[in-house]
Deep mutational scan, measured.
Amino acid sequence: GTLHLNGVTVKVPSLEKAIKAAKKFAKKYNLEVQVHGNTVHVH
């Protein structure tokens, strides 16, 4: 999967790991997580 954090793109081995990391990051910075196919966006 691919993880987008505020314009930074990170390749992640699995989508589940990407979503987990995204949710952790989003919670910390009070951001929103959106999943588009195998790409996770945090903004």
Rank of each mutant, 00 (worst) to 15 (best):
L3S: 01
T9H: 10
I19R: 00
H43K: 11
V8P: 03
E16S: 10
Q34V: 14
V8H: 11
G7I: 08
V12H: 08
L3D: 01
K28M: 07
V10P: 01
E16I: 12
K27E: 11
L3W: 04
A18L: 12
I19V: 07
H36D: 11
H36V: 14
F25H: 04
Q34M: 12
P13W: 12
Y29V: 05
K17L: 14
A26C: 07
V12A: 05
T9F: 12
V40Y: 01
V40I: 14
I19K: 02
V35L: 05
K23L: 13
V35K: 04
F25I: 10
T2D: 05
L15G: 02
H4S: 08
N6L: 15
G37I: 07
L3M: 07
K17S: 10
N30G: 14
A26H: 01
H41Q: 11
V10R: 04
N6V: 11
H41K: 08
T39K: 08
T39P: 03
H43F: 14
L5C: 15
K23T: 09
K20F: 04
V33W: 07
L5N: 01
E16M: 09
L15W: 07
Y29I: 05
K28C: 15
L15R: 01
T2M: 12
K28E: 05
L5F: 15
L31R: 00
G37Q: 03
G7P: 03
V12E: 01
V33I: 14
K27Q: 12
E32P: 02
H4L: 12
G37P: 02
A18M: 06
V40W: 02
V33S: 00
A26Y: 03
A26N: 02
L31H: 02
G1N: 07
T9P: 07
S14M: 07
K27T: 07
V40E: 01
Q34W: 14
V40P: 02
V40L: 06
H43M: 10
H43E: 05
A21R: 07
N30K: 08
K23G: 02
E16P: 05
L15N: 01
N30S: 06
N6H: 13
A22E: 00
K27H: 06
G1V: 15
H36E: 11
L5Q: 03
